[in-house]
Simulated scan of single mutants.
Amino acid sequence: MDQTIRTDFNYAEASAALKTALGLKTSPVAIKLATSRADIPEGMEKFEGTVRHCQMVSIARKEGRAFYATVDNHECMGGAWALGLREITETLKTGHFYFKLGKYESTAACKRTIDKIPHVESGATFATLYAPLEKTSFSPHIVLIVAPPRTMLKLAQASLFKYGGRIVSEFSGIQSVCSDTTAQTYLTGKPNYSLGCDGSRKFSGIEDDEMVMGFPIEMLTDMVDAVRVVTAAPGSKK
């Protein structure tokens, strides 16, 4: 398997630390956008069937499964496009897809949104890999967490702990797990927070009181260290 990061992480320890400090009910999910078959560990299970990226994330975080999926496994065309697995569909490109779903006043308003959706170059991704962080056997690109707003507060504080600043988050109420917190985080190298979307809440079991965030794997050690501090700080609500 090709390594795609020079740092060696203890993913099991990092996952345990995040789950304990943040009180997570499910596992953080490690995600990799594999550019070739060489990025897939030997013997790793290939997903059977066709579901959405957000559903695959839920399978990893709730069921503890590690697997990979190719374009034929991705049911959501918008998600597959955002992740770089396929070209954008014509109905999505023109704005008609979300217009017909009642999301926008006009196809133009929809197109203005779609044109700004972060997405990986079409065809650049061979497969998407998923695992609960503690079971990760590959070099991931993103760690994705689904949790209530108070947990997101602690993650935001952890993001700023070392250097300070402000949280700048981008989302549009659509494609929250595939674009907002996977593709955008992959492309920018910065954490991103999303309110979720109707699709991910309907199909993947993200609850009404949960949000989604992703951070790049390069931040894992700093995030673990900072989460331990900010959750135990005297000013932190217990």
Rank of each mutant, 00 (worst) to 15 (best):
M1L: 14
D2Y: 12
T4G: 05
T4D: 02
I5C: 03
I5G: 04
R6Y: 00
D8M: 01
D8G: 03
A14E: 00
A16K: 01
A17N: 03
A21W: 12
L24S: 06
K25N: 07
P28D: 08
V29C: 03
L33D: 00
T35K: 15
S36M: 04
I40E: 08
E45R: 10
E48N: 00
T50Q: 03
R52W: 03
C54Y: 12
C54G: 12
Q55P: 04
I59Y: 15
F67Y: 06
V71S: 08
C76P: 09
G78V: 11
G79Q: 11
E87K: 14
I88Y: 10
T89P: 00
F97H: 13
Y98R: 09
F99A: 10
F99W: 12
G102L: 10
K103H: 01
K103E: 06
S106V: 02
A108R: 13
A108Y: 12
A109T: 05
R112S: 04
R112A: 10
T113Y: 13
V120W: 08
S122T: 01
A124L: 09
A124Q: 14
T125F: 09
A127L: 01
L129I: 14
Y130G: 09
L133M: 04
E134H: 01
S139R: 07
I142L: 02
V146D: 00
T151Q: 05
L160E: 07
Y163A: 04
R166V: 09
I167N: 05
I167S: 03
V168F: 15
S169C: 13
Q175P: 02
V177M: 15
V177Y: 14
T182E: 11
L187P: 05
T188C: 08
Y193L: 14
G196T: 11
K202W: 00
E207S: 15
D209Y: 08
M211F: 15
M211C: 15
M213W: 03
F215D: 01
E218G: 07
T221K: 14
D222V: 06
M223T: 12
A226E: 02
T231E: 08
K238S: 13
